[in-house]
Simulated assay, not measured.
Amino acid sequence: MRASERAYATLLDEIQTGALAPGTVLGEVEQSTRLGVSRTPLREALRRLASDGLVIQASPRVTVVAGIDADDIRALFDLRRALETEAARLAAQRGDRRVFLALAAEFERVDTADADDYYALIARFDAAIDAAVDNSYLSAALRSVRTHLVRVRRMARDNPLRLSASAREHELIARAIGSGDPELAAHATHVHLHNAFTTILEALTEDPS
């Protein structure tokens, strides 16, 4: 892996997990030393993160981790709703039904107490959606949304009831796709996103930090 890719992957993970909080200053000297890369690949990594919308240039020499607030989350879910409902609808029309019925069975029995395993299952579900839709433009847009979604999901991560409900909602979406029912798949996706959005906003209100 190239030095710039390694630096990008590390910083991306730290931003998404909250290890680098919003507003954290990413000084070139400090970060290049910490990550064990020279300043040129670090700058390449920071440019990619800026393109992702995860860092901003506070000044020509100061880069900071971008914040995320209720308005950002609302805008993200507006886009997510449009993309994911259409992707679910197309997957029900084009996808391998056996793949989604198998995923539905996994969602039915998944242990949401292990959040990492649960989100790994969601990642496989997302990949199956992308493969079924087979539309590079839609998949690229969804990847961009998911990059930010990882940060937002942390707000619901410690809510056991929400994770359990989310698993049931994903099971319904997967079964609708597996049954070849585009409208049910789209509707179930819409309901899931509404519930997720409501929970995340509630968590943000409780913990404004």
Rank of each mutant, 00 (worst) to 15 (best):
S209Q: 09
R175Y: 12
S166D: 15
A21P: 08
E106W: 06
G67R: 09
A105L: 02
A105W: 10
V110Y: 10
D72N: 03
P60L: 10
R154C: 06
A141L: 14
A82F: 11
T205R: 13
I73H: 02
L204I: 04
E108W: 11
D117V: 12
F125L: 04
Y118T: 04
D114Y: 06
T147H: 09
A105T: 11
I129Q: 07
E84N: 06
S4P: 05
I68K: 03
D117I: 11
T189N: 09
R74E: 14
M1A: 07
P182I: 01
V145S: 12
G23S: 01
S51N: 15
E169I: 00
D116P: 10
A174V: 05
T17I: 01
S38K: 13
R97Q: 13
E171L: 03
T112Y: 05
A186H: 04
A75V: 09
V64D: 06
T63H: 02
A21L: 15
H187Y: 11
R80V: 00
R97W: 09
V99K: 08
E206D: 12
A131N: 05
R89V: 02
D126A: 13
E5I: 11
S38R: 12
A82T: 08
I68L: 10
F77N: 04
T40P: 07
R34P: 07
S139P: 10
R43D: 07
D71S: 10
D69A: 06
E106T: 01
V37F: 03
V110C: 11
D130T: 07
L76A: 06
L12N: 06
D72R: 07
A70R: 08
G67K: 12
R162T: 08
Q31R: 11
S144Y: 10
F77S: 07
P160S: 00
T40D: 15
V55W: 01
L35N: 02
L79E: 14
A115H: 12
G23N: 00
A141P: 02
E28A: 13
L11R: 02
L193W: 04
V99M: 08
S38V: 02
Y137V: 14
A82C: 04
S179C: 12
A186V: 01
H194F: 15
D114F: 02
L42P: 01
Y8S: 00
T147V: 15
L49A: 05
G180T: 08
L193S: 08
I122P: 01
E106M: 01
A188E: 00
E169H: 06
A140M: 09
T85F: 04
R168D: 12
V150I: 14
L138H: 14
I56V: 15
F197G: 04
Y8T: 00
L46T: 00
P208H: 06
S164A: 15
I122C: 07
A188P: 05
V150F: 13
D52H: 01
L42K: 00
D71N: 12
L54W: 03
L26P: 08
I129H: 05
D181W: 04
A87H: 05
